[in-house]
Measured scan of single mutants.
Amino acid sequence: MEQATVKWFNAEKGFGFIERENGDDVFVHFSAIQGDGFKSLDEGQAVTFDVEEGQRGPQAANVQKA
């Protein structure tokens, strides 16, 4: 698992990007966020996640709020 920071997340559209420590951004979809209830992330929030290869490149999976 990697630890990184949420760059931005649009709760209405259900997706955003996580900024990795190496500077690369990773796409995150609300369905990858672990937990119950409304799944959203806040800008600047610390998260841990795995990286999977998606249809359009790397994307976050198993996202957990740190």
Rank of each mutant, 00 (worst) to 15 (best):
D25W: 13
W8F: 07
S31W: 06
Q3L: 14
F30D: 05
G57P: 04
T5Q: 08
F27K: 02
D50Y: 15
V6N: 03
M1W: 11
I18F: 04
V26H: 00
D25N: 12
N22M: 09
F27V: 01
F38T: 07
G37Q: 06
D25R: 10
K65L: 13
N22G: 11
L41T: 02
F15W: 15
G14A: 03
E21F: 12
A4D: 01
Q55F: 14
E21A: 14
F30W: 15
N10D: 13
D25I: 14
Q3D: 06
A60K: 00
N10V: 03
E19R: 15
Q59D: 02
A46F: 13
H29W: 06
H29I: 04
G37T: 06
P58Q: 09
E12N: 11
V47G: 00
R20P: 04
S31K: 07
G37A: 07
G44W: 04
G44D: 04
K39Y: 06
V6P: 04
F38R: 08
T48A: 07
K39W: 07
G16V: 05
F9T: 01
A46P: 11
F17I: 06
A4H: 04
S40F: 13
F30A: 08
K13N: 06
R20Q: 07
I33K: 00
E12G: 09
D36N: 12
N62Y: 04
R20M: 09
G57N: 02
N10E: 06
A32F: 03
F9R: 00
F49K: 03
N22H: 11
L41I: 05
A66T: 13
T5W: 14
F49V: 03
D25K: 10
F38P: 10
V6M: 00
N10Y: 05
K7G: 03
P58I: 11
G14Y: 01
A66V: 15
E12P: 01
D42W: 14
K65E: 06
A61S: 10
Q3H: 14
V63D: 02
G54V: 04
N62R: 10
G16R: 00
G37R: 03
A66P: 07
Q3N: 11
N22P: 08
I18K: 00
F30R: 09
F9K: 02
V6K: 03
Q45Y: 05
S40W: 15
V51A: 05
E53Q: 14
E12C: 15
K7F: 02
V28W: 05
W8Y: 06
V51I: 14
R56V: 07
G14T: 02
I33A: 03
E12D: 11
G23T: 05
F15G: 01
Q55D: 11
D24M: 11
F17S: 01
Q45P: 01
Q34D: 08
A4I: 02
Q59E: 08
R56S: 09
E43Q: 15
A32L: 00
M1T: 13
Q59I: 09
N10F: 05
D36H: 12
F49T: 02
G35A: 10
V47H: 01
D42P: 06
V26G: 01
F49I: 06
Q64N: 11
P58A: 09
F17M: 08
F38V: 08
E53G: 07
A46E: 11
S31Y: 04
D36C: 15
A32R: 03
L41N: 01
D24A: 13
T5N: 10
I18G: 00
G37D: 07
Q3K: 14
G57A: 03
E43L: 12
G14N: 03
E21K: 13
F15H: 04
A61H: 09
E2A: 10
P58S: 08
Q34C: 13
I18M: 04
G14C: 07
D36T: 13
Q3M: 13
D25A: 09
N10I: 03
E52L: 13
E52T: 12
E2R: 10
F30L: 06
S40G: 08
V47E: 02
A60R: 00
S40E: 08
K39I: 07
F38I: 08
T48M: 11
K65C: 11
N10T: 03
Q3P: 07
M1Y: 12
N62S: 06
M1V: 12
A11Q: 11
G57I: 03
G35S: 09
V28G: 01
G44E: 03
V6L: 01
N22R: 09
K13R: 11
E2Q: 14
K65T: 10
R56M: 10
A32Q: 09
G57W: 05
K39D: 04
K13V: 09
V26Q: 00
I33W: 00
E21T: 12
R20E: 05
E53F: 14
V6A: 00
N10Q: 05
G35F: 08
S31A: 06
M1A: 14
